[in-house]
Design a protein around this nucleic acid. Structure first.
Lengths: 344, 344
DNA sequence: CGCAAAATCCAAAGCGCTTTGGAAAGCATA
DNA sequence: TATGCTTTCCAAAGCGCTTTGGATTTTGCG
């Protein structure tokens, strides 16, 4: 069944047709009759003919490939948030006949990789991960004319390119307000890295809620770093050691929240009783539904699926590649507040 | 500086040389003088010339691309273990001028993807992830003549293909023996999915240790599932609810071990005091060194870097692609037992 | 039936690279 | 100076597709 690969020439000879006609039949051109199209498709399927991507892309200039450049820092760590995003994106690519090229980039390597992609025409477009406050990649990609969609967005001129983001500000404002309404006045924020745009917006939401309730913002209650479990653990321990420790915590990721849990356990504190916790939850699949039990999730959380975001961002990029003159598309997703056991 | 892309023809015209000579100069062929080679390289760098991958692969039949097909199950979850493996592999590819093509495969989709890769000549080779007990992919890849390296291995005839694996059996035997020497007779095993080859070997190591110490193997002390946090939590809770609960636990992954920690905390048990814990640790980068504090790691663990495994597997595959007639290579890595705080 | 228009199909020219089979130039030797 | 080897370079033929411009056949209609 899975015989030797067949090329267009051989296929067309089998059919007694020209390569032109066969190519057009398979690519859905109108100038070929339905009868011959059917005949071509059938034999193509039977001989297991598949067009060579190199030849097709040489002829068309399109690669049907999307590049993902994931930042890995010095320790070459791929944050698990990316894997779920990739999983979603990869699903959308498969559905549209695209493929995903993955590169990891240490600090400062990204620009060179994008230039490389562009000058070799290696990919048709890229997804920009983890935009910083005013990310230089945007200008670069525009200048080299490479289609892109940003997951997240940068500070200003966000209308000039396509992005997909969650409403981080309103999410954290919502969460903080819930804690305040429950009577908390001292709320710790275990934020992500504040050179990242999303972290800045989350902090802004947190501060907006405090301000509108006339609660003083204390820098001792705010931590910022890469969202790992150990960081969550240490930052929580540090704040609990303050003279006036927070009575509630907001976490920027479920990973750091899990570290926080470990810290509470060390201190003999019960989440939901002694300390309230709200965490942002990207719905990382390997943790399942917020580590939920049957009916009630464990964490009270602000949740939005990063996998769904990956899927949608991929779709946006593909439409943009196919319709280059179309105006940039922006999508802002609202975030759900889900009540769990970590707030009373 | 980053001007419009230049092709070979233009470059050779600039130099007053033929395309042949320029191509050979850049690809290190001996029949071109060092003087002209230098001249070619300089101008190529100056004009930012980069050969088109599609054209090169059409001409050579090589794609300089490696495929990774990661199983994602029904919920399309990419286990974070894969991300670290990918990160390591991607580093090796970059160093060797290769690139990484990522596909996710739901249940039963893998075979079709491999066939697709082969008939379209999309990649030069693939890495096989998560081999099951007697994995059909091995035979398939051999039959379609696709170079591959397996991360892990299958049951038998493992000498007939290239793989890189850790010594799961000796690791779990070592760990279990440590617990037995510390006086534990009831040891729970929170294993991975036992359709996976590595999980079978881990269980075999665990049972070997029990057997050689004349301890009865109780099926109630053994759990098996995909290695997620919630599974670790539930399985631990279940065993703790037994009439004679285990006094020690072995976990197949640090993710499940974290779930176990949460279960212990629910039951008011202190790891390292009331209950001993050893976990297999893939050194997932986002959890840092076994969630270690300053000098002493938290978990007592069997550790082996999955990122390093990714790097090495990639290297093995590349050598195999370049030397196709060479005998298959196998590498078995021993696993270190690191003492932490979770065993007294 | 005859003719223009529409429907089908095709030959051949690229796309940008590698590689085969020579040709021309440089060199030492006799 | 002529001879035979190297050295150094080149023209041209692919690799497998898409696409332009044109040829051929079929159809519609008076």
């Amino acid at each position: 069944m899975a015989s030797q690969p067949v090329n267009l020439k051989q296929l067309s000879e089998h059919l007694g047709l020209s390569q032109t006609t066969v190519s057009r039949a398979l690519n859905g051109f109108p100038e070929v009759s339905e009868k011959t199209r059917k005949r071509v498709q059938d034999l193509a399927a039977q001989l297991n003919y598949r067009p060579s991507p190199s030849a097709a892309s040489l002829a068309t200039g399109k690669t049907k490939t999307i590049g993902h450049v994931i930042p890995v820092g010095t320790h070459r760590m791929i944050n698990p948030h990316f894997s779920d995003f990739l999983s979603g994106a990869s699903e959308a690519y498969a559905a549209a006949g695209y493929e995903l090229l993955l590169r990891t980039a240490g600090p400062g390597e990204e620009e060179e990789i994008y230039r490389d992609f562009a000058s070799r025409r290696r990919v048709d477009g890229v997804i920009v991960h983890g935009p910083s406050i005013d990310d230089p990649r945007i200008a670069l990609l525009k200048s080299i004319n490479m289609p892109f969609v940003v997951h997240g967005r940068t500070g200003d001129r966000a209308e000039s390119y396509s992005w997909l983001d969650v409403n981080n500000l309103s999410a954290f404002e919502k969460g903080t307000n819930l804690l305040i309404k429950a009577g908390h006045q001292s709320i710790g924020l275990i934020n992500g890295l504040e050179s990242m745009n999303f972290a800045v917006r989350r902090r802004a939401g947190y501060e907006a809620a405090l301000n509108s309730n006339n609660i003083e913002i204390k820098s001792a209650y705010i931590a910022s770093a890469d969202m790992t479990e150990p960081y969550g653990y240490k930052a929580t321990l540090n704040m609990l050691a303050l003279d006036e420790p927070p009575t509630a915590f907001m976490y920027a990721s479920i990973l750091t929240a899990m570290g926080g849990l470990r810290a509470l356990s060390d201190c003999g504190l019960m989440p939901g009783k002694d300390i309230a916790i709200i965490t942002y939850d990207d719905m990382l699949s390997f943790l399942e539904s917020s580590m939920g039990e049957e009916h009630r999730p464990f964490f009270t959380s602000l949740q939005s699926s990063i996998q769904a975001a990956g899927r949608r961002a991929a779709e946006l990029l593909i439409t943009q590649i196919n319709q280059p003159d179309q105006a940039p598309i922006q999508e802002l997703w609202e975030v759900d507040l889900i009540l769990g056991k970590t707030t009373s």
